[in-house]
């Protein structure tokens, strides 16, 4: 922890970062906190949250960066947060030159719980690299179901939705100002559960964007296994377009039209 604090202290003191988005204990709860040079002593209390306490720090950075567009900020990132930042760079929401990473590697039990394929960032200031989980068992199970059974299961999940928009609101990748899920011509209004396609539309938007942080699933009051859906959407993008979400170099298939199209239509 001291190594992380020293790095943050140095960044702030030397003016390399105008602020640091991390965590602090507030009355026994680990909460996101914005550390600045003016209150440098607070950095002594900067922590890596214990257990699986996590917040969408990327999303907070988006707001702060929009307010202070010229400033550089440091941010605590896990593997998923860094993938999120890379995607946000690609979609023109943040400037990579104005973000400094303070990396945290996840412990093995967290990686196993998330079935995370990249549980550590490129810079590590706290924790040790652990073993990634290449294949999600939860996805594999649903893939093995017959179509009718899969539909029954998903309809059961979707039917519990209370349309709180929690999944969208917590999502660090949901940066649109207008949301098609709120468009009255595209999504029925005034009823719960919402249209069956509600989660599917979100899954489409998450394909090639979902960084698999899992906050949506944790925020969901109806325990809808959203993560399974988005993990599969990402796996499909990988299969079809060979695009790894969060890859620093690859170009998103939804951004380029390409020089040629090699995909074939499916036969009837």
């Amino acid at each position: 922890m001291e190594r992380l604090r020293d790095k943050v202290r140095k960044l702030l003191a030397e003016g390399k970062a105008g602020g640091y988005i991390g965590y602090k204990m507030v009355e026994g709860h680990p909460l996101p906190h914005f550390f600045t040079k003016d209150r440098l002593s607070e950095v002594d209390e900067a922590i890596v949250p214990p257990g699986d306490a996590r917040y969408p720090l990327d999303k907070l950075l988006l707001q702060v960066a929009a307010r202070y567009p010229k400033e550089t900020f440091a941010i605590q990132v896990r593997g998923c947060d860094e993938r999120g930042l890379i995607e946000l760079y690609k979609w023109g929401q943040l400037d990579p030159d104005q973000v400094v990473l303070v990396g945290v590697a996840c412990p093995q039990d967290q990686a196993d719980y998330c079935e995370c394929s990249g549980p550590f960032p490129s810079v590590i200031d706290y924790g040790e690299k652990c073993r990634p989980v290449p294949q999600s068992q939860r996805v594999t199970r649903v893939e093995g179901l017959a179509e009718a059974d899969a539909l029954k299961e998903w309809l059961g999940h979707f039917g519990r939705c209370v349309k709180c928009y929690g999944c969208r609101d917590v999502c660090p990748m949901c940066f649109c100002k207008e949301c098609s899920l709120e468009h009255p011509d595209l999504m029925s209004t005034g009823m719960v559960p919402p249209d069956t396609i509600f989660q599917l539309v979100r899954a489409i938007h998450m394909a090639g964007r979902c960084i698999d942080c899992g906050l949506c699933e944790e925020a969901c009051p109806a325990d809808i296994p959203l993560r399974v859906l988005y993990k599969k959407a990402n796996a499909l993008v990988k299969d079809l377009f060979d695009y790894e979400t969060g890859s620093p170099t690859a170009v998103s298939p939804w951004k380029v039209l390409g020089e040629e199209s090699t995909l074939q239509t499916k036969p009837m």
Binding site: L151, L229, L240, S261, T265
Partner: peptide, 17 residues
Amino acid sequence: IKRMRFLQDLMKFVGME
């Protein structure tokens, strides 16, 4: 084709034929 191939595969996953 990108969108529709993706959608077809996603529909298959949730059992929408």
